[in-house]
Simulated scan of single mutants.
Amino acid sequence: MSKGLIGVLTIGQSPRTDVTPSFEKILGEEIKLIERGALDRLKMEDMQLISPDLTEQTYISRLRNGEAVKIGKQRLLPLLQRELTELEMNVEVVMMLCTGDFPTLNATKPIIYPDQILTHTVQAISPTGILGLIIPLEEQRETLIEKWATCNLTLITEVASPYEKSDVKGAAERLQQHGADLIVLDCMGYNEHHKKMAIVGSGLPVILPRTLTARIALEYIEK
């Protein structure tokens, strides 16, 4: 018998078979996941419609065929809202599968936002010092630095995508060499192997958003 229903809302396409095993390991078999994706109803030939232009914030996610896709935020929001509205009718709480911020989304059920969990966690355990960020895309650098600026930490960044072959270990090593005290893998696409490589490369504590978010969800829904 299920102990609870958690919605998983990705900005790409569901199912996110690259992520949900991490959730299931933490949540256990008695909690059921129901997935939706902002791009679920788009055909491959229509994917160019959500490509970012030079003036808007860029996100990256995964299609169900395993390919990565770049998404413009303004094109994403109405698609995300449509899927959220339907998803929350069938679940108790929704986990956002993105570390971006989405303050304009309207919801009737609680939404667990990884970006808020990350920033508050870092502030709690490392109120001063140097924070190293590993991020998926070069074009996200300025936006993510602005997001993390509220933590009043010195920020240094390296780029290593979780969706293609990249040197996460080397990125983490460079962050350590530049004085980082803590590393955050700032994307839900990073997995436990990426975290291990970052630890090996840096010898520093590394925060993985997907497992942190799942543990918060379990704390909320477990009765």
Rank of each mutant, 00 (worst) to 15 (best):
M1C: 04
G4H: 07
L5V: 06
I6Y: 00
G7M: 11
V8E: 15
V8T: 14
L9K: 05
I11Q: 07
S14T: 10
R16A: 14
T20C: 09
T20Q: 13
S22W: 12
F23H: 14
E24F: 04
K25C: 10
G28A: 09
I31Q: 01
I34Y: 08
I34A: 10
E35D: 11
D40N: 07
K43H: 12
K43T: 00
M44D: 15
M44F: 15
D46W: 06
M47E: 11
Q48C: 12
L49R: 12
L49N: 11
I50R: 12
P52S: 01
D53I: 00
L54I: 12
Q57M: 13
Y59S: 05
I60F: 00
I60T: 09
S61A: 10
R62Q: 09
R64P: 03
R64C: 05
G66T: 02
A68V: 06
K70N: 02
K70M: 08
I71E: 04
G72F: 05
G72P: 09
R75K: 14
L77A: 08
L77N: 03
Q81W: 05
L84A: 03
T85C: 00
T85E: 11
M95R: 13
M95W: 07
D101K: 13
P103A: 01
P103D: 08
P103E: 09
T104F: 08
T104A: 14
N106F: 11
A107S: 14
I111V: 13
I111D: 02
D115W: 04
T119C: 11
T119K: 14
H120Y: 06
Q123G: 14
A124F: 10
A124M: 12
I130V: 14
L133K: 03
L133S: 08
L133N: 09
L137M: 14
E139I: 13
E139G: 01
R141M: 13
R141C: 09
E142I: 10
T143Q: 13
L144F: 09
T150K: 15
N152G: 08
I156H: 02
T157G: 12
T157F: 08
E158P: 09
S161M: 12
S161K: 05
P162Y: 07
Y163C: 06
D167N: 15
V168Q: 03
V168R: 06
R174D: 10
Q177V: 05
G179T: 09
D181W: 00
D181N: 15
L185I: 02
L185H: 03
L185S: 03
C187E: 06
M188D: 10
Y190D: 10
H193L: 14
M197P: 00
G201Q: 02
S202I: 05
G203L: 11
P205I: 03
V206Y: 05
P209Q: 04
P209W: 04
T213C: 00
R215Y: 02
I216C: 01
Y220E: 01
I221S: 08
